[in-house]
Design a binder for these strands. Structure first.
Lengths: 293, 293
DNA sequence: ATTAATTCATAAATAAAAAGCATTAATTTG
DNA sequence: CAAATTAATGCTTTTTATTTATGAATTAAT
Protein backbone atom coordinates (compact mmCIF):
# COMPACT_ATOMS: atom_id res chain seq x y z
CA UNK A 1 0.00 0.00 0.00
CA UNK A 2 1.42 3.36 -0.98
CA UNK A 3 0.44 6.94 -0.25
CA UNK A 4 -0.08 7.51 -3.96
CA UNK A 5 -2.53 4.62 -4.04
CA UNK A 6 -4.44 6.07 -1.11
CA UNK A 7 -4.50 9.42 -2.86
CA UNK A 8 -5.88 7.77 -6.00
CA UNK A 9 -8.36 5.81 -3.93
CA UNK A 10 -9.63 8.97 -2.26
CA UNK A 11 -9.93 10.56 -5.69
CA UNK A 12 -12.23 7.81 -6.89
CA UNK A 13 -14.07 7.67 -3.57
CA UNK A 14 -14.87 11.34 -3.94
CA UNK A 15 -15.89 11.37 -7.58
CA UNK A 16 -17.29 7.85 -7.70
CA UNK A 17 -16.26 7.97 -11.32
CA UNK A 18 -12.96 6.62 -12.60
CA UNK A 19 -12.57 8.85 -15.64
CA UNK A 20 -13.40 12.06 -13.79
CA UNK A 21 -11.18 11.10 -10.88
CA UNK A 22 -8.33 10.27 -13.26
CA UNK A 23 -8.61 13.70 -14.82
CA UNK A 24 -8.50 15.39 -11.43
CA UNK A 25 -5.48 13.30 -10.50
CA UNK A 26 -3.71 14.15 -13.76
CA UNK A 27 -3.37 10.55 -14.87
CA UNK A 28 -5.22 8.45 -17.42
CA UNK A 29 -8.19 6.33 -16.49
CA UNK A 30 -6.51 2.96 -17.11
CA UNK A 31 -3.63 3.91 -14.81
CA UNK A 32 -6.13 4.74 -12.12
CA UNK A 33 -8.14 1.56 -12.62
CA UNK A 34 -4.95 -0.45 -12.38
CA UNK A 35 -3.83 1.16 -9.14
CA UNK A 36 -7.19 0.63 -7.50
CA UNK A 37 -7.19 -2.99 -8.61
CA UNK A 38 -3.75 -3.38 -7.17
CA UNK A 39 -4.78 -1.84 -3.88
CA UNK A 40 -7.79 -4.13 -3.73
CA UNK A 41 -5.61 -7.09 -4.54
CA UNK A 42 -3.13 -6.28 -1.82
CA UNK A 43 -5.79 -5.72 0.80
CA UNK A 44 -7.77 -8.71 -0.39
CA UNK A 45 -10.84 -6.54 -0.31
CA UNK A 46 -13.26 -5.04 -2.79
CA UNK A 47 -13.34 -1.29 -2.32
CA UNK A 48 -15.73 -0.23 -5.05
CA UNK A 49 -18.87 -1.82 -6.37
CA UNK A 50 -18.70 -1.03 -10.08
CA UNK A 51 -21.36 -2.23 -12.43
CA UNK A 52 -20.31 -0.60 -15.68
CA UNK A 53 -22.47 2.41 -15.05
CA UNK A 54 -22.19 3.22 -11.39
CA UNK A 55 -19.31 3.21 -8.96
CA UNK A 56 -20.01 3.07 -5.25
CA UNK A 57 -18.04 2.37 -2.12
CA UNK A 58 -18.41 -0.96 -0.39
CA UNK A 59 -18.51 -0.95 3.40
CA UNK A 60 -14.83 -1.86 3.46
CA UNK A 61 -14.20 0.97 1.01
CA UNK A 62 -16.08 3.42 3.19
CA UNK A 63 -13.99 2.37 6.16
CA UNK A 64 -10.78 2.84 4.20
CA UNK A 65 -11.97 6.22 2.97
CA UNK A 66 -12.48 7.51 6.49
CA UNK A 67 -9.16 6.16 7.70
CA UNK A 68 -7.23 7.23 4.62
CA UNK A 69 -8.41 10.80 5.08
CA UNK A 70 -7.11 10.71 8.63
CA UNK A 71 -3.79 9.34 7.49
CA UNK A 72 -3.41 11.94 4.77
CA UNK A 73 -4.12 14.71 7.24
CA UNK A 74 -1.66 13.27 9.68
CA UNK A 75 0.90 13.17 6.92
CA UNK A 76 0.33 16.82 6.10
CA UNK A 77 0.64 17.68 9.75
CA UNK A 78 3.94 15.82 10.05
CA UNK A 79 5.36 17.56 7.01
CA UNK A 80 4.60 20.96 8.47
CA UNK A 81 5.94 20.08 11.88
CA UNK A 82 9.11 18.58 10.58
CA UNK A 83 9.73 21.70 8.54
CA UNK A 84 9.18 23.92 11.55
CA UNK A 85 11.62 21.86 13.56
CA UNK A 86 14.13 21.93 10.74
CA UNK A 87 13.91 25.71 10.63
CA UNK A 88 14.35 25.93 14.38
CA UNK A 89 10.87 27.31 14.82
CA UNK A 90 9.61 24.53 17.00
CA UNK A 91 11.04 22.38 19.73
CA UNK A 92 12.82 22.57 23.03
CA UNK A 93 15.91 24.67 23.53
CA UNK A 94 17.81 24.09 26.76
CA UNK A 95 19.37 27.34 27.82
CA UNK A 96 21.92 27.51 30.61
CA UNK A 97 22.75 30.79 32.25
CA UNK A 98 24.56 32.22 35.27
CA UNK A 99 22.40 33.75 37.96
CA UNK A 100 23.36 37.19 36.75
CA UNK A 101 21.68 36.80 33.39
CA UNK A 102 18.26 36.58 34.96
CA UNK A 103 18.83 40.07 36.33
CA UNK A 104 19.84 41.53 33.02
CA UNK A 105 19.28 40.37 29.46
CA UNK A 106 17.55 37.01 29.84
CA UNK A 107 13.98 38.16 30.47
CA UNK A 108 13.94 40.37 27.38
CA UNK A 109 15.45 37.65 25.26
CA UNK A 110 12.92 35.08 26.36
CA UNK A 111 10.09 37.50 25.70
CA UNK A 112 11.38 38.19 22.21
CA UNK A 113 11.79 34.47 21.48
CA UNK A 114 8.23 33.87 22.65
CA UNK A 115 6.96 36.49 20.25
CA UNK A 116 9.00 35.53 17.21
CA UNK A 117 8.84 31.76 17.68
CA UNK A 118 5.79 30.91 19.73
CA UNK A 119 6.38 27.19 19.26
CA UNK A 120 9.84 27.19 20.77
CA UNK A 121 9.90 26.06 24.36
CA UNK A 122 12.92 27.18 26.36
CA UNK A 123 14.12 25.15 29.28
CA UNK A 124 16.25 27.27 31.58
CA UNK A 125 18.83 26.00 33.99
CA UNK A 126 20.88 28.28 36.18
CA UNK A 127 24.42 27.01 36.60
CA UNK A 128 27.79 28.41 37.54
CA UNK A 129 30.15 28.71 34.60
CA UNK A 130 32.18 25.52 34.74
CA UNK A 131 29.12 23.36 35.48
CA UNK A 132 27.33 25.05 32.60
CA UNK A 133 30.18 24.42 30.18
CA UNK A 134 30.27 20.76 31.16
CA UNK A 135 26.52 20.52 30.71
CA UNK A 136 26.95 21.89 27.20
CA UNK A 137 29.73 19.42 26.47
CA UNK A 138 27.55 16.57 27.71
CA UNK A 139 24.72 17.78 25.51
CA UNK A 140 22.51 18.41 28.52
CA UNK A 141 22.22 22.06 27.61
CA UNK A 142 22.11 23.44 24.08
CA UNK A 143 23.33 26.96 24.59
CA UNK A 144 24.62 28.95 27.55
CA UNK A 145 25.40 32.48 28.62
CA UNK A 146 28.93 33.07 29.91
CA UNK A 147 30.90 36.13 30.95
CA UNK A 148 33.82 36.65 28.58
CA UNK A 149 34.27 34.38 25.62
CA UNK A 150 35.55 30.86 25.81
CA UNK A 151 38.64 29.56 24.06
CA UNK A 152 37.89 25.91 23.33
CA UNK A 153 37.88 24.19 19.97
CA UNK A 154 34.69 22.21 20.59
CA UNK A 155 32.68 25.32 21.41
CA UNK A 156 31.34 28.00 19.19
CA UNK A 157 30.59 31.32 20.80
CA UNK A 158 29.25 34.72 19.99
CA UNK A 159 29.58 37.87 22.08
CA UNK A 160 26.24 39.51 22.29
CA UNK A 161 26.83 42.45 24.63
CA UNK A 162 29.52 44.30 26.52
CA UNK A 163 29.12 46.39 29.63
CA UNK A 164 31.16 48.24 32.21
CA UNK A 165 32.10 46.81 35.54
CA UNK A 166 31.24 48.70 38.71
CA UNK A 167 32.53 48.79 42.24
CA UNK A 168 29.77 47.87 44.66
CA UNK A 169 29.93 49.62 48.02
CA UNK A 170 27.74 49.85 51.08
CA UNK A 171 25.69 53.03 50.97
CA UNK A 172 27.58 54.69 53.85
CA UNK A 173 31.04 54.05 52.36
CA UNK A 174 33.43 57.06 52.40
CA UNK A 175 34.11 56.90 48.67
CA UNK A 176 31.38 57.82 46.23
CA UNK A 177 31.09 58.83 42.56
CA UNK A 178 32.27 62.32 43.54
CA UNK A 179 35.63 61.48 45.11
CA UNK A 180 36.37 58.30 43.15
CA UNK A 181 39.52 58.35 41.04
CA UNK A 182 40.84 54.84 40.66
CA UNK A 183 40.24 51.41 42.18
CA UNK A 184 43.59 51.58 43.97
CA UNK A 185 41.57 53.59 46.50
CA UNK A 186 40.08 50.20 47.56
CA UNK A 187 43.36 48.35 47.99
CA UNK A 188 42.86 47.86 51.72
CA UNK A 189 39.23 46.82 51.46
CA UNK A 190 37.91 43.34 51.98
CA UNK A 191 36.57 41.93 48.70
CA UNK A 192 33.66 39.59 47.98
CA UNK A 193 34.08 38.03 44.51
CA UNK A 194 32.95 35.07 42.48
CA UNK A 195 35.03 31.95 43.21
CA UNK A 196 38.10 31.22 41.18
CA UNK A 197 37.16 28.61 38.64
CA UNK A 198 39.27 26.59 36.28
CA UNK A 199 39.56 28.52 33.05
CA UNK A 200 37.25 31.35 34.05
CA UNK A 201 38.35 34.39 32.13
CA UNK A 202 36.03 36.61 34.12
CA UNK A 203 37.71 35.97 37.47
CA UNK A 204 41.16 36.51 35.97
CA UNK A 205 39.98 39.77 34.49
CA UNK A 206 38.93 41.11 37.87
CA UNK A 207 42.27 40.15 39.45
CA UNK A 208 44.23 41.76 36.61
CA UNK A 209 42.20 44.90 36.98
CA UNK A 210 43.37 45.22 40.58
CA UNK A 211 46.92 44.25 39.71
CA UNK A 212 47.10 47.02 37.17
CA UNK A 213 46.16 49.46 39.92
CA UNK A 214 48.94 48.04 42.03
CA UNK A 215 47.29 45.79 44.55
CA UNK A 216 46.01 42.26 45.04
CA UNK A 217 42.44 42.15 46.36
CA UNK A 218 41.94 40.73 49.81
CA UNK A 219 39.16 38.24 49.08
CA UNK A 220 37.35 37.24 52.26
CA UNK A 221 34.12 35.88 50.78
CA UNK A 222 33.19 34.11 47.60
CA UNK A 223 29.78 33.61 46.09
CA UNK A 224 28.52 32.60 42.66
CA UNK A 225 25.44 34.63 42.99
CA UNK A 226 25.45 38.33 42.35
CA UNK A 227 22.33 38.76 44.42
CA UNK A 228 24.08 37.18 47.41
CA UNK A 229 27.11 39.39 46.93
CA UNK A 230 24.92 42.49 46.89
CA UNK A 231 23.37 41.46 50.20
CA UNK A 232 26.78 40.83 51.75
CA UNK A 233 27.94 44.27 50.64
CA UNK A 234 24.76 45.81 52.00
CA UNK A 235 25.58 44.33 55.41
CA UNK A 236 29.06 45.82 55.42
CA UNK A 237 30.85 42.49 55.00
CA UNK A 238 33.02 43.84 52.22
CA UNK A 239 32.92 45.43 48.76
CA UNK A 240 32.73 43.84 45.31
CA UNK A 241 33.09 44.38 41.59
CA UNK A 242 30.16 43.35 39.44
CA UNK A 243 28.85 44.00 35.94
CA UNK A 244 26.98 47.31 35.97
CA UNK A 245 23.74 45.64 34.86
CA UNK A 246 23.31 44.44 38.44
CA UNK A 247 22.40 48.03 39.23
CA UNK A 248 18.86 47.33 38.07
CA UNK A 249 18.37 44.84 40.89
CA UNK A 250 20.40 46.79 43.44
CA UNK A 251 19.13 46.73 47.04
CA UNK A 252 18.69 50.05 48.86
CA UNK A 253 21.76 49.71 51.07
CA UNK A 254 24.39 49.64 48.28
CA UNK A 255 25.80 52.03 45.74
CA UNK A 256 27.54 51.43 42.39
CA UNK A 257 30.56 53.28 41.04
CA UNK A 258 30.93 52.58 37.33
CA UNK A 259 34.39 51.81 35.97
CA UNK A 260 34.49 53.46 32.59
CA UNK A 261 37.78 52.54 30.95
CA UNK A 262 38.01 49.94 28.18
CA UNK A 263 39.70 47.20 30.21
CA UNK A 264 37.00 47.66 32.80
CA UNK A 265 34.31 46.10 30.61
CA UNK A 266 32.99 42.59 30.65
CA UNK A 267 31.33 40.87 27.75
CA UNK A 268 28.43 38.45 27.74
CA UNK A 269 28.69 35.60 25.25
CA UNK A 270 26.59 32.71 24.11
CA UNK A 271 28.38 29.38 23.94
CA UNK A 272 27.27 26.16 22.29
CA UNK A 273 28.81 22.92 21.13
CA UNK A 274 30.19 23.37 17.63
CA UNK A 275 28.51 20.20 16.40
CA UNK A 276 25.20 20.62 18.17
CA UNK A 277 22.76 20.54 15.28
CA UNK A 278 19.77 21.83 17.18
CA UNK A 279 18.37 24.17 14.56
CA UNK A 280 16.95 26.53 17.16
CA UNK A 281 20.41 27.74 18.15
CA UNK A 282 20.61 29.78 14.98
CA UNK A 283 17.32 31.52 15.67
CA UNK A 284 18.15 32.05 19.32
CA UNK A 285 21.38 33.78 18.33
CA UNK A 286 19.60 35.93 15.80
CA UNK A 287 17.10 37.12 18.36
CA UNK A 288 19.84 37.84 20.89
CA UNK A 289 21.91 39.79 18.39
CA UNK A 290 18.94 41.68 17.04
CA UNK A 291 18.13 42.90 20.53
CA UNK A 292 21.47 43.69 22.04
CA UNK A 293 23.63 45.21 19.31
CA UNK B 1 6.41 10.69 0.38
CA UNK B 2 5.59 7.02 0.17
CA UNK B 3 4.87 4.34 2.73
CA UNK B 4 7.90 2.43 1.53
CA UNK B 5 10.07 5.46 2.21
CA UNK B 6 8.68 5.75 5.71
CA UNK B 7 9.36 2.05 6.24
CA UNK B 8 12.94 2.53 5.07
CA UNK B 9 13.29 5.64 7.21
CA UNK B 10 12.12 3.76 10.29
CA UNK B 11 14.59 1.02 9.47
CA UNK B 12 17.49 3.45 9.49
CA UNK B 13 16.09 5.30 12.51
CA UNK B 14 16.11 2.05 14.42
CA UNK B 15 19.49 0.75 13.40
CA UNK B 16 21.18 4.11 12.99
CA UNK B 17 23.28 2.33 10.43
CA UNK B 18 22.53 2.33 6.72
CA UNK B 19 24.14 -0.97 5.81
CA UNK B 20 22.57 -2.90 8.66
CA UNK B 21 19.20 -1.32 8.05
CA UNK B 22 19.44 -2.14 4.35
CA UNK B 23 20.08 -5.76 5.19
CA UNK B 24 17.07 -5.91 7.47
CA UNK B 25 14.94 -4.28 4.79
CA UNK B 26 16.18 -6.75 2.14
CA UNK B 27 17.55 -4.07 -0.12
CA UNK B 28 21.06 -2.87 -0.82
CA UNK B 29 22.62 0.03 1.01
CA UNK B 30 22.75 2.44 -1.96
CA UNK B 31 19.05 1.92 -2.60
CA UNK B 32 18.37 2.82 1.00
CA UNK B 33 20.63 5.87 0.94
CA UNK B 34 18.88 7.09 -2.18
CA UNK B 35 15.42 6.72 -0.74
CA UNK B 36 16.36 8.54 2.43
CA UNK B 37 17.94 11.33 0.40
CA UNK B 38 14.81 11.54 -1.66
CA UNK B 39 12.65 11.75 1.42
CA UNK B 40 14.84 14.44 2.86
CA UNK B 41 14.76 16.31 -0.41
CA UNK B 42 11.00 16.20 -0.63
CA UNK B 43 10.50 17.30 2.97
CA UNK B 44 13.24 19.89 2.68
CA UNK B 45 14.60 18.61 5.94
CA UNK B 46 17.68 16.75 7.15
CA UNK B 47 16.57 13.62 8.96
CA UNK B 48 19.90 12.06 9.84
CA UNK B 49 23.17 13.56 10.94
CA UNK B 50 25.73 11.33 9.24
CA UNK B 51 29.42 11.97 9.63
CA UNK B 52 30.91 8.97 7.88
CA UNK B 53 31.13 7.02 11.09
CA UNK B 54 27.97 7.75 13.01
CA UNK B 55 24.37 8.15 12.01
CA UNK B 56 22.00 9.93 14.34
CA UNK B 57 18.55 11.42 14.13
CA UNK B 58 18.14 15.16 13.93
CA UNK B 59 15.33 16.71 15.91
CA UNK B 60 13.22 16.79 12.78
CA UNK B 61 14.09 13.14 12.19
CA UNK B 62 13.07 12.23 15.71
CA UNK B 63 9.74 13.94 15.18
CA UNK B 64 9.18 12.09 11.93
CA UNK B 65 10.15 8.81 13.59
CA UNK B 66 7.49 9.20 16.27
CA UNK B 67 4.83 10.20 13.78
CA UNK B 68 5.78 7.61 11.19
CA UNK B 69 5.41 4.85 13.76
CA UNK B 70 1.91 6.10 14.50
CA UNK B 71 1.05 6.18 10.82
CA UNK B 72 2.38 2.68 10.22
CA UNK B 73 0.35 1.35 13.12
CA UNK B 74 -2.72 3.11 11.86
CA UNK B 75 -2.15 1.55 8.48
CA UNK B 76 -1.90 -1.92 9.97
CA UNK B 77 -5.07 -1.26 11.91
CA UNK B 78 -6.92 -0.18 8.78
CA UNK B 79 -5.80 -3.24 6.86
CA UNK B 80 -7.14 -5.53 9.55
CA UNK B 81 -10.37 -3.65 9.88
CA UNK B 82 -11.02 -3.49 6.19
CA UNK B 83 -10.45 -7.24 5.96
CA UNK B 84 -12.86 -7.88 8.81
CA UNK B 85 -15.48 -5.76 7.13
CA UNK B 86 -14.89 -7.48 3.82
CA UNK B 87 -15.40 -10.85 5.46
CA UNK B 88 -18.56 -9.63 7.13
CA UNK B 89 -17.03 -9.96 10.56
CA UNK B 90 -17.35 -6.34 11.49
CA UNK B 91 -19.82 -3.61 10.91
CA UNK B 92 -23.48 -2.85 11.31
CA UNK B 93 -26.19 -5.14 10.07
CA UNK B 94 -29.68 -3.71 10.04
CA UNK B 95 -32.12 -6.49 10.71
CA UNK B 96 -35.85 -6.04 10.28
CA UNK B 97 -38.27 -8.47 11.81
CA UNK B 98 -41.98 -8.91 12.54
CA UNK B 99 -42.99 -8.73 16.17
CA UNK B 100 -43.39 -12.49 16.22
CA UNK B 101 -39.70 -13.16 15.66
CA UNK B 102 -38.75 -11.62 18.97
CA UNK B 103 -40.84 -14.32 20.65
CA UNK B 104 -39.23 -17.17 18.78
CA UNK B 105 -35.96 -17.45 16.90
CA UNK B 106 -34.50 -13.95 17.05
CA UNK B 107 -33.00 -13.99 20.56
CA UNK B 108 -31.08 -17.19 19.92
CA UNK B 109 -29.85 -15.94 16.57
CA UNK B 110 -28.58 -12.67 18.01
CA UNK B 111 -26.81 -14.52 20.80
CA UNK B 112 -25.12 -16.80 18.31
CA UNK B 113 -24.07 -13.86 16.12
CA UNK B 114 -22.62 -12.12 19.17
CA UNK B 115 -20.53 -15.17 19.96
CA UNK B 116 -19.29 -15.95 16.47
CA UNK B 117 -18.80 -12.35 15.32
CA UNK B 118 -18.30 -10.18 18.35
CA UNK B 119 -17.57 -7.13 16.18
CA UNK B 120 -20.86 -7.23 14.33
CA UNK B 121 -23.38 -4.77 15.64
CA UNK B 122 -26.99 -5.58 14.82
CA UNK B 123 -29.56 -2.85 14.56
CA UNK B 124 -33.04 -4.26 14.98
CA UNK B 125 -36.22 -2.69 13.75
CA UNK B 126 -39.61 -4.26 14.22
CA UNK B 127 -41.87 -3.69 11.23
CA UNK B 128 -44.93 -5.26 9.74
CA UNK B 129 -44.23 -7.19 6.60
CA UNK B 130 -44.92 -4.70 3.83
CA UNK B 131 -43.18 -1.86 5.63
CA UNK B 132 -40.23 -4.15 6.21
CA UNK B 133 -40.02 -5.14 2.56
CA UNK B 134 -40.07 -1.50 1.51
CA UNK B 135 -37.36 -0.70 4.04
CA UNK B 136 -35.23 -3.43 2.47
CA UNK B 137 -35.91 -2.07 -1.02
CA UNK B 138 -34.93 1.42 0.12
CA UNK B 139 -31.75 0.02 1.63
CA UNK B 140 -32.80 1.13 5.09
CA UNK B 141 -32.66 -2.45 6.32
CA UNK B 142 -30.19 -5.07 5.15
CA UNK B 143 -32.05 -8.26 5.91
CA UNK B 144 -35.47 -9.12 7.25
CA UNK B 145 -37.49 -12.00 8.63
CA UNK B 146 -40.76 -12.72 6.87
CA UNK B 147 -43.38 -15.43 7.14
CA UNK B 148 -43.49 -17.48 3.94
CA UNK B 149 -41.08 -16.71 1.17
CA UNK B 150 -41.31 -13.76 -1.15
CA UNK B 151 -41.61 -13.89 -4.89
CA UNK B 152 -39.88 -10.80 -6.17
CA UNK B 153 -36.97 -10.60 -8.59
CA UNK B 154 -35.07 -7.94 -6.66
CA UNK B 155 -35.06 -9.97 -3.47
CA UNK B 156 -33.09 -12.98 -2.51
CA UNK B 157 -34.50 -15.15 0.23
CA UNK B 158 -33.75 -18.23 2.20
CA UNK B 159 -36.17 -20.28 4.29
CA UNK B 160 -34.60 -20.98 7.62
CA UNK B 161 -37.34 -22.78 9.52
CA UNK B 162 -40.74 -24.25 9.21
CA UNK B 163 -43.27 -24.81 11.94
CA UNK B 164 -46.86 -25.87 12.48
CA UNK B 165 -49.66 -23.45 12.92
CA UNK B 166 -51.87 -23.69 15.93
CA UNK B 167 -55.36 -22.63 16.83
CA UNK B 168 -55.30 -20.29 19.79
CA UNK B 169 -58.29 -20.55 22.11
CA UNK B 170 -59.30 -19.08 25.42
CA UNK B 171 -58.58 -21.55 28.22
CA UNK B 172 -62.23 -22.23 28.94
CA UNK B 173 -63.14 -23.01 25.30
CA UNK B 174 -65.20 -26.18 24.77
CA UNK B 175 -62.78 -27.67 22.24
CA UNK B 176 -59.43 -28.91 23.43
CA UNK B 177 -56.66 -31.21 22.16
CA UNK B 178 -58.82 -34.19 23.21
CA UNK B 179 -61.92 -33.51 21.16
CA UNK B 180 -60.28 -31.61 18.31
CA UNK B 181 -60.65 -33.15 14.85
CA UNK B 182 -60.51 -30.43 12.24
CA UNK B 183 -60.63 -26.63 12.06
CA UNK B 184 -64.09 -26.76 10.52
CA UNK B 185 -65.12 -27.12 14.16
CA UNK B 186 -64.35 -23.37 14.46
CA UNK B 187 -66.37 -22.23 11.44
CA UNK B 188 -68.78 -20.19 13.53
CA UNK B 189 -66.14 -18.59 15.72
CA UNK B 190 -65.01 -15.01 15.55
CA UNK B 191 -61.43 -14.77 14.27
CA UNK B 192 -58.62 -12.37 15.16
CA UNK B 193 -55.94 -12.43 12.44
CA UNK B 194 -53.13 -10.34 11.05
CA UNK B 195 -54.38 -7.71 8.59
CA UNK B 196 -54.60 -8.51 4.93
CA UNK B 197 -51.57 -6.99 3.29
CA UNK B 198 -50.66 -6.56 -0.32
CA UNK B 199 -48.79 -9.65 -1.44
CA UNK B 200 -48.66 -11.31 1.96
CA UNK B 201 -48.51 -15.03 1.39
CA UNK B 202 -49.02 -15.74 5.08
CA UNK B 203 -52.48 -14.19 5.24
CA UNK B 204 -53.58 -15.98 2.10
CA UNK B 205 -52.36 -19.24 3.54
CA UNK B 206 -54.53 -18.87 6.61
CA UNK B 207 -57.59 -18.08 4.54
CA UNK B 208 -56.99 -21.06 2.24
CA UNK B 209 -56.63 -23.30 5.25
CA UNK B 210 -60.12 -22.40 6.34
CA UNK B 211 -61.52 -22.62 2.83
CA UNK B 212 -60.22 -26.15 2.53
CA UNK B 213 -62.21 -27.02 5.63
CA UNK B 214 -65.24 -25.50 4.01
CA UNK B 215 -65.70 -22.12 5.67
CA UNK B 216 -64.61 -18.52 5.44
CA UNK B 217 -63.35 -17.15 8.74
CA UNK B 218 -65.37 -14.40 10.30
CA UNK B 219 -62.64 -11.89 11.03
CA UNK B 220 -63.69 -9.34 13.62
CA UNK B 221 -60.34 -8.04 14.75
CA UNK B 222 -56.98 -7.50 13.11
CA UNK B 223 -53.63 -6.94 14.68
CA UNK B 224 -50.07 -7.16 13.47
CA UNK B 225 -48.81 -8.18 16.80
CA UNK B 226 -49.05 -11.75 17.97
CA UNK B 227 -48.79 -10.65 21.58
CA UNK B 228 -51.81 -8.43 21.13
CA UNK B 229 -53.75 -11.23 19.50
CA UNK B 230 -52.96 -13.53 22.39
CA UNK B 231 -54.32 -10.99 24.85
CA UNK B 232 -57.49 -10.54 22.83
CA UNK B 233 -58.03 -14.30 22.78
CA UNK B 234 -57.38 -14.46 26.51
CA UNK B 235 -60.16 -11.94 27.03
CA UNK B 236 -62.62 -14.00 25.00
CA UNK B 237 -62.78 -11.56 22.09
CA UNK B 238 -62.25 -14.32 19.55
CA UNK B 239 -59.92 -17.13 18.50
CA UNK B 240 -56.88 -17.06 16.24
CA UNK B 241 -54.38 -19.09 14.27
CA UNK B 242 -50.72 -18.39 14.95
CA UNK B 243 -47.39 -20.10 14.42
CA UNK B 244 -46.91 -22.65 17.18
CA UNK B 245 -43.73 -20.96 18.38
CA UNK B 246 -45.95 -18.38 20.09
CA UNK B 247 -46.68 -21.07 22.62
CA UNK B 248 -43.45 -20.16 24.44
CA UNK B 249 -44.78 -16.71 25.25
CA UNK B 250 -48.37 -17.85 25.78
CA UNK B 251 -50.28 -16.10 28.56
CA UNK B 252 -52.05 -18.24 31.19
CA UNK B 253 -55.55 -17.68 29.87
CA UNK B 254 -55.08 -19.30 26.42
CA UNK B 255 -54.48 -22.75 25.02
CA UNK B 256 -52.91 -23.92 21.76
CA UNK B 257 -54.10 -26.73 19.52
CA UNK B 258 -51.39 -27.65 17.08
CA UNK B 259 -52.37 -28.25 13.45
CA UNK B 260 -50.19 -31.10 12.32
CA UNK B 261 -50.82 -31.59 8.61
CA UNK B 262 -48.37 -30.42 5.95
CA UNK B 263 -50.40 -27.51 4.58
CA UNK B 264 -50.80 -26.32 8.13
CA UNK B 265 -47.17 -25.25 8.40
CA UNK B 266 -45.70 -21.81 8.01
CA UNK B 267 -42.12 -21.07 7.08
CA UNK B 268 -39.86 -18.31 8.29
CA UNK B 269 -37.56 -16.80 5.67
CA UNK B 270 -34.83 -14.24 5.50
CA UNK B 271 -35.13 -11.71 2.72
CA UNK B 272 -32.56 -9.26 1.42
CA UNK B 273 -31.97 -7.15 -1.64
CA UNK B 274 -30.25 -9.22 -4.29
CA UNK B 275 -27.62 -6.57 -4.92
CA UNK B 276 -27.03 -5.55 -1.33
CA UNK B 277 -23.31 -6.09 -0.97
CA UNK B 278 -23.17 -5.89 2.80
CA UNK B 279 -20.78 -8.75 3.46
CA UNK B 280 -22.36 -9.54 6.80
CA UNK B 281 -25.50 -10.92 5.17
CA UNK B 282 -23.63 -14.07 4.20
CA UNK B 283 -22.46 -14.68 7.76
CA UNK B 284 -25.85 -13.86 9.21
CA UNK B 285 -27.43 -16.45 6.96
CA UNK B 286 -24.88 -19.04 7.89
CA UNK B 287 -25.50 -18.55 11.56
CA UNK B 288 -29.27 -18.75 11.06
CA UNK B 289 -29.07 -21.91 9.02
CA UNK B 290 -26.59 -23.53 11.36
CA UNK B 291 -28.99 -23.04 14.22
CA UNK B 292 -32.36 -23.82 12.80
CA UNK B 293 -31.92 -26.70 10.38
C1' DA C 1 52.85 6.00 9.01
C1' DT C 2 50.96 2.92 6.19
C1' DT C 3 47.41 -0.53 5.65
C1' DA C 4 43.06 -2.58 6.33
C1' DA C 5 38.38 -2.17 7.39
C1' DT C 6 34.23 0.19 7.78
C1' DT C 7 30.66 2.93 5.98
C1' DC C 8 28.02 6.26 3.45
C1' DA C 9 27.72 8.46 -1.20
C1' DT C 10 27.79 8.37 -6.23
C1' DA C 11 27.53 6.54 -11.19
C1' DA C 12 26.03 3.59 -14.52
C1' DA C 13 23.37 -0.51 -15.70
C1' DT C 14 19.44 -3.23 -15.00
C1' DA C 15 15.02 -4.48 -13.29
C1' DA C 16 10.55 -3.26 -11.91
C1' DA C 17 6.68 -0.45 -11.73
C1' DA C 18 3.69 3.01 -13.37
C1' DA C 19 1.62 5.49 -16.91
C1' DG C 20 0.01 6.04 -21.51
C1' DC C 21 -2.36 4.60 -25.80
C1' DA C 22 -5.46 1.93 -28.30
C1' DT C 23 -9.10 -1.01 -27.93
C1' DT C 24 -12.86 -3.87 -25.96
C1' DA C 25 -17.06 -5.02 -23.57
C1' DA C 26 -20.92 -3.77 -21.30
C1' DT C 27 -24.49 -0.62 -20.52
C1' DT C 28 -27.40 3.28 -21.17
C1' DT C 29 -29.71 6.80 -24.01
C1' DG C 30 -31.91 8.90 -27.79
C1' DC D 1 -30.51 0.11 -33.30
C1' DA D 2 -26.85 3.47 -33.35
C1' DA D 3 -24.30 6.53 -30.45
C1' DA D 4 -22.33 7.54 -26.25
C1' DT D 5 -20.44 6.43 -21.89
C1' DT D 6 -17.41 4.05 -18.94
C1' DA D 7 -14.43 0.73 -16.77
C1' DA D 8 -11.34 -2.99 -18.01
C1' DT D 9 -7.55 -5.16 -20.78
C1' DG D 10 -3.33 -5.75 -23.75
C1' DC D 11 0.63 -3.81 -25.22
C1' DT D 12 4.23 -0.10 -25.37
C1' DT D 13 6.71 3.55 -23.43
C1' DT D 14 8.35 6.11 -19.67
C1' DT D 15 9.62 6.61 -15.11
C1' DT D 16 11.32 5.01 -10.93
C1' DA D 17 13.73 1.88 -7.95
C1' DT D 18 17.29 -1.37 -7.26
C1' DT D 19 21.62 -3.49 -8.00
C1' DT D 20 26.46 -3.68 -8.98
C1' DA D 21 30.64 -1.52 -8.87
C1' DT D 22 33.31 2.05 -7.13
C1' DG D 23 34.88 6.12 -4.48
C1' DA D 24 35.89 8.96 -0.42
C1' DA D 25 36.31 9.60 4.33
C1' DT D 26 37.22 7.92 8.69
C1' DT D 27 38.82 4.81 12.20
C1' DA D 28 41.70 1.02 13.98
C1' DA D 29 45.69 -1.77 13.75
C1' DT D 30 50.18 -3.31 12.58
Amino acid sequence: MEITQLKYFLGVAEELHFSKAAEKLFITQPALSRQIQQLEGELGVILFERNKRNVSLTMAGECLRVEAIKIMNQLEFVKKRVTLIHNGEEGELRVGHPGSAIHSVLPQILLEIQQKFPKIRTILSEEIENVLLNAIKDNKVDIGFVRESIIDAQFDSRTISSEFLAVVLPENHAISQDNFIDISQFKDEKFILTPRQEGSVYYDKLIKLCERSGFLPNIIHESNYGATILRLVEHNLGISILPISYQTSMPKGVKFIALKTIPETTSLSLVWLRDNTNPMIKNFLEVCEGMLV
